[in-house]
Design a protein around this nucleic acid. Sequence first.
DNA 1: TAGATTGTTAATCGATTAACAATC
DNA 2: TAGATTGTTAATCGATTAACAATC
Lengths: 213, 213
Amino acid sequence: MEVKEISQAVIGRLPRYFRYLGELKDEGVERISSQELSELMKVTASQIRQDFNNFGGFGQQGYGYNVEFLYNEIGKILGLDKKHNFIIVGAGNLGRALGNYMNFERRGFIFRGMFDRNLELIGKDVRGIKVMPMEELESFVRENDIDIAVLTIPKTGAVEVADKLAHNGIRAIWNFAHVDLNLPKEIQVENVHLSDSLMKLSYNINRYMQENP
Amino acid sequence: MEVKEISQAVIGRLPRYFRYLGELKDEGVERISSQELSELMKVTASQIRQDFNNFGGFGQQGYGYNVEFLYNEIGKILGLDKKHNFIIVGAGNLGRALGNYMNFERRGFIFRGMFDRNLELIGKDVRGIKVMPMEELESFVRENDIDIAVLTIPKTGAVEVADKLAHNGIRAIWNFAHVDLNLPKEIQVENVHLSDSLMKLSYNINRYMQENP
DNA sequence: TAGATTGTTAATCGATTAACAATC
DNA sequence: TAGATTGTTAATCGATTAACAATC
């Protein structure tokens, strides 16, 4: 059965809703209307209601939305109620920084392994995980139910490693390498191109300077 | 004079064009048509021509685009022909990883200073830059022509630090803290919310699993 | 000149916003 | 019940794609 396709524009907004609702929940707020939430988040109330209604009715006329319920529902939509094992490929500065970041665990993403081809890094410890050599990557992915690979290696080699991961049953790649991976559509790819992001910032600085000399 | 506003959708695509053109240039390719580029990048030729024409005619009928010229023009549009001094606020794992990343320098972003409130990190060296205490942040920004601050601190305190930076003449904030900064519109903000990105990936994994059980 | 390909206008598609009937 | 606010349809806006005349 074909599930109604939700646009990536909507998906992209869900984590932000989730964050605001989590904060409201922690503050002890029980209910919120789309109007109130729209003022807080600086988006239209109409968009909020449209977005939520992609997934069915979470609110109640005349009342609004129950904060905790909505928070939990969005968490489920995002799949945060499930556990996902991940590995990091590339034990450089960025890879180690991500490995050390505890908050991913809180959302169900479990750090299981780390790999590098640099022999000097092999055996180093990142939060209890020892860096393994690249030769062990494929068997490790196959044998340890790994869903997600975080790619923090230079662009050279990234495509090749991604293909290896794909052939060994990875479900998704969180790609920090500055290259486009062309993988079969059953492998989900989320790109984080930091230099692209910095270039956008650069554009906006310059545009502002030109418009306001 | 009001410069014609370019949509952020277009801006967001420029770094990718820039990357592909840079690679083509390095391979010695002299000219390319929108059709050829569209096949390479897997976008429509129409979109490519529309995008470029936001900035004036870079091509020539019957010929296509000169790769090196187009590459340089997009670089200028992105402001990569100018130098921007940046500092990193937050010398944790992520901050140090970004400080160590050399490629930003190649695009005109110059690493000038690093700050942390943790006394144990003060004085530590990241690529020749010593970590300074937070007390020196404001005067350093004022006195060293700092354009961009990279915020790699926990969400608590991020808003306060951003306000301080804004009051001392920063032009832009590259925000890795998981919180929305509400700054005056003359301060450019580019958010990199890593956990949001990971949640999107999580959604797509789960959606695929549901559609293909 | 003829062929190729841009620059640009027009058509389509999708996303956002507005409006309001349904309903708690 | 009356008031409030959702869920949902309709209207608008903006972005993408198609088409083709202009021109190298």
